[in-house]
Design a protein around this nucleic acid. Structure first.
Lengths: 220, 220
DNA sequence: ACCTGAACACCGTTCAAGT
DNA sequence: ACCTGAACACCGTTCAAGT
């Protein structure tokens, strides 16, 4: 107990793990280098010995989240892809800020590329041609990583306000009628159902094209 | 010429129009209230008479871009939706920052809701049930507005670097083989083709479900 | 009615030191 | 080798004035 307790020295892993937890807790927009330093009981500049700058911190945080996704499994390509995407989705739901950060990063990290590479491999191993796999990867887009941005938040409350229904009648009828009662506990909508609906629609489409011997359009 | 030239007074429209142009020119991340004020030859605080804060400025900019999208046309729902989505895509390509800002806004503006309402109306007018329209709107996600985030930029150069190909062989083969030569001028990939591939796959899937009398799953 | 100036509480980051 | 302190050039925004 003589003098201050000797802090265990920082390292990159501790910086990243703390950044992930802190972003989970306070949101990504509130995560600053200064706030993170404070959380670690350190002066802001101490972080720069372990992380080149804030961009590299964000990249490291993304990689930490990706590391939580299950590896590709065995079986028919459709099931392999489906299971992995849902595993990715589970990881991103544990860290709500991650989808936005991934979208925002200008250059993908090696871990993101490795993930995408393994997904392309799953389609190719299933027998899809290079060309079809290329288009399929684009068509999946962010769904490969288990997310797709929502243009309108589920917005909690069951029935829309009267002014809303008057101004946007088509949206209002969707909000009230989109799910049968059994699946809507307390109003709102079943995000997992919506995600799987689109995912399966896409996978069905890919399977159909593949089964029909899809080839690039002749003209160009 | 006696004294300073009298500046014409600011108004909300001029603030928003200048903000849109400035974001086109310098990028959204460089667009600050201070930089915009400078562009208008005015002190930063002058803006706050016409726009409550930066969030409201961004909302106004989004609405300005949405106003460039063609209204819904006449015809079969599939064609109506397809044409409108491609019109939205054209508007968003004119303002590359807009997709990111739309994704980022926590609450949709009235103009965004009106747009979505009209798209829901297009599906409903085509005879799709409320339930199917609900899922269809979710499945379209940001594609309703003509964009879908790319996890990897087309990344210009035709053939991937050798180190890349070694580390990510499945991605490398897609990069080189994804398009036939006629459609790939100078390497890279045809974004419009990819967008329409996914769009048509989804629309085909919706039409198939609708034609087959799709109803919500029995169990819940 | 519209614009200004100074100030506040924040950012990420550089540089030159401390132990 | 690792951490610190002071400083720089930025943010968005409030408040109290100016014309």
């Amino acid at each position: 107990m003589a003098g201050a307790v000797r802090r265990e020295p920082l390292n990159r892993g501790r910086v990243l793990a703390t950044a992930v937890q802190l972003a989970d807790a306070i949101g990504i927009e509130a995560l600053s280098m200064r706030r993170l330093a404070q959380e670690l009981g350190v002066v802001p500049m101490a972080l720069y010995k372990h992380v080149a700058n804030k961009d590299q911190l964000l990249d490291g945080m993304v990689d930490a989240v990706l590391a939580e996704i299950d590896p590709v499994g065995d079986g028919p390509w459709r099931e392999v892809v489906r299971a992995r995407v849902l595993s990715a989705r589970a990881a991103l739901l544990r860290h709500r800020w991650a989808a936005r950060v991934i979208e925002t990063r200008p250059v993908p990290t090696a871990a993101v590329l490795a993930y995408l590479d393994s997904m392309a491999g799953a389609f190719r191993s299933g027998g899809l041609s290079v060309q079809l796999t290329h288009h399929v990867m684009h068509a999946m887009g962010s769904r490969l990583l288990g997310f797709s941005q929502e243009l309108f938040e589920a917005s909690g409350a069951g029935a829309p306000a009267p002014e809303f229904a008057a101004a946007f009648p088509r949206l209002a009828e969707l909000a009230s009628g989109g799910h049968d009662e059994a699946s809507v506990v307390g109003g709102g909508c079943d995000d997992r159902f919506e995600f799987e609906f689109a995912l399966d629609l896409l996978l069905d489409g890919f399977a159909r094209l593949h089964g029909a011997g899809w080839a690039p359009p002749a003209g160009g």
